[in-house]
């Protein structure tokens, strides 16, 4: 049996800390800031500009406000599960980051340091899909344990939405897996080297995956679980203070994870087009590692921008439209995509 060395465990622990405090928290606060800024720009406003230069300290002010607020637990709520629900949400949201390859590897001395926590996990695609489905438990549990009919409806909607879109999401990835020939995210990225990005081979798969991702992260136009006009606040109606803040954080962490997945599966992950050949860099160079990290971050940022842009452009789907789209459109299209990809691959070989 493979027993990890102490050094390896230590390096993994350091990576986890860097990930939490260097990626998830700053990423989420940047998302909050840009969510407010971009929504303001779209509505011809200026947005937050009072707290710090250009309003950059606004996310900190938001968090301080949430921390200082009274944490109200409804008398009729199931206290244990009410407490557990946000924890499940955030844990799942953060756990997805373990397999995301932020870059290939960097050779420091004689050790290969991969820019990912679990680079060798050979079922990382399944791991991601499994975790995103568990994520809904946090929301459903929050809705149920609040003992509030609106919260419950929000939780139920989240669960049904998840079931409707999970299938298409998984099926849309099969084409990518067939081309890449692996379930390991890093190897999938390596297979896309030389601008052979999957989005050029799998445009339909990308579209389905993107739509399903929006539904999975409960973002507009699929934000039915927290539809304000109908359900007050949806599953987080009865949450206040930092518990609400954690749901908020989990939503943004999910957004970042979903963007990272879209980049990894369809846009070449950490691949930097052309530049390494021009500069004459080799695998393992520190500069190349940093370039890959930068390219990955830039690509993810573009998708985060699209997430926010879509939210402030499109109206929310009606419930029956949501179900129609999930079952009658996306699912057959995903199956068609697999069939076409398989046929083409069979005849090209």
């Amino acid at each position: 049996m493979y027993a990890p060395l102490i050094e390896e465990t230590l390096i993994a622990a350091i990576k986890v800390v860097i990930l939490l405090f260097g990626v998830v928290l700053p990423g989420a606060s940047a998302c909050v800031y840009f969510e407010r800024k971009i929504s303001a720009w779209i509505q011809q406003r200026i947005g937050p500009n009072r707290v710090g230069p250009l309003g950059l300290l606004q996310p900190i002010a938001d968090v301080v406000k949430l921390l200082l607020k009274e944490d109200i637990v409804p008398a009729a709520a199931d206290k244990k599960f009410h407490f557990l629900a946000p924890l499940i949400s955030i844990t799942i949201a953060v756990a997805v980051f373990a397999v995301i390859p932020f870059g290939n590897y960097v050779l420091i001395g004689n050790t290969y340091t991969y820019l990912s926590i679990a680079p060798h996990l050979n079922v990382s695609v399944l791991y991601v899909l499994a975790l995103t489905s568990i994520g809904v438990y946090g929301i459903t549990l929050a809705g149920w344990s609040s003992n509030n009919k609106y919260s419950l409806l929000g939780g139920l909607r989240s669960a049904s939405q998840m079931i409707s879109y999970e299938l298409s999401m998984g099926l849309s990835l099969i084409g990518v897996l067939m081309i890449g020939g692996s379930l390991n995210l890093n190897e999938l990225v390596i297979a896309q080297s030389g601008l052979k990005w999957n989005v050029f081979y799998q445009p339909l798969g990308f579209l389905i995956f993107m739509i399903a991702s929006y539904a999975e992260t409960n973002r507009s136009p699929f934000d039915l679980p927290e539809a304000e006009p109908e359900l007050v606040g949806g599953y987080h109606t009865e949450y206040s203070g930092m518990k609400f803040g954690i749901f908020f954080l989990a939503e943004y962490a999910n957004m970042i994870a979903a963007s990272a997945m879209m980049v990894t599966f369809f846009f070449g992950g950490w691949q930097v087009p052309f530049l390494p050949e021009i500069l004459g860099l080799h695998d393992g160079d520190l500069l190349l590692g940093l370039l890959q990290l930068g390219a990955f971050t830039a690509k993810v940022a573009v998708f985060l921008f699209i997430f926010i842009w879509v939210r402030w452009s499109l109206p929310r789907f009606r419930y029956d439209q949501l179900m129609n789209l999930g079952w009658k459109v996306l699912l057959p299209l995903a199956l068609l995509n697999i069939a076409v990809t398989g046929t083409v691959m069979f005849f090209l070989k």
Partner: peptide
Amino acid sequence: EIVKGMALTLKQMFEPKMTRQ
């Protein structure tokens, strides 16, 4: 239709701002 709507909001982002400080 979605592309049309998104193009509209993208255009809006570069319009002069209405806010009075």
